[in-house]
Simulated scan of single mutants.
Amino acid sequence: MIREHFIEILALQHRWSDQATAAMQRRGVLIRDVVPELFRRNGALSVAQGGWSPFPMDVQGKDGIGRKSQVPWVRFFSPSESNSATDGWYAVYLFTGDGASVVLALMHASTHANGDALIPRDARAIREAVDWARGELGEWMQHDERLLTDIALRAPKSKVSAAYERSIVAAYEYRVEAMPTTEELLGDLRDVVGALAFLYFARS
């Protein structure tokens, strides 16, 4: 079902509006509620709860604060390491603005909050963080030729998509016409979460 919901979200991206239209309300239900719960039921829980994550992990989906964002996301994180999407390291699915693909990225927080607005972080600081992570994950970065280091989210009306792109350490990209099975998606997610755990331990 994860695969099918991803395809539906990407179809809704073609009807994107920053207003709460019927299409965006449906997208919000999928992003905030349905998809995170499916991942929780498919193992995205702490080891103590019987899941496969090497650290206590939570799942969160967001589609905008107030106005609807052009790049909605679902992220996986340790609450002690990243208590919000504007802090720390996490794994995240980013849905491209043109509805062509979804990206599973290992990334650092790229923005900070100013009221209801998200402000891109300093580009130099982000580059230093990404370079550090790539240095720590040297072998992992080479283990799968599908891993990408340059991603385009194709969201020209987004004020933060460029900051997201700069903050990505490595990513898998799934085109809508060649969406993997749910089992394959979960396999890649386990892989990225393992790399995320390595970064958490490297920082401790």
Rank of each mutant, 00 (worst) to 15 (best):
G61Y: 05
K62M: 11
D63N: 14
I65D: 14
R67S: 15
K68A: 09
Q70S: 03
V71R: 03
P72F: 01
W73C: 02
V74N: 04
F77E: 07
S80K: 13
S80V: 11
T86K: 00
D87R: 15
G88N: 06
W89M: 08
W89Y: 07
Y90F: 15
L94P: 02
T96A: 15
T96V: 02
G99A: 08
S101F: 08
V102M: 11
A105I: 02
A105F: 05
M107V: 01
S110G: 12
S110I: 00
T111P: 11
A113E: 14
A113M: 08
A117M: 09
L118W: 09
P120Y: 01
P120Q: 05
I126P: 08
I126M: 15
I126V: 14
I126S: 15
I126W: 11
R127W: 05
R127V: 00
V130Q: 12
W132I: 04
A133S: 13
R134P: 10
R134I: 04
G135K: 01
G135Y: 06
G135M: 09
G138A: 12
E139A: 10
W140F: 07
Q142W: 09
Q142R: 15
H143R: 15
H143C: 10
L147A: 09
L148R: 10
D150T: 14
I151S: 07
A152P: 04
A152M: 04
A152T: 12
L153G: 04
L153I: 01
R154C: 12
P156F: 01
S158E: 09
V160L: 04
Y164G: 00
E165K: 03
R166Q: 15
I168Q: 09
V169F: 10
A170C: 14
A170F: 12
A171C: 11
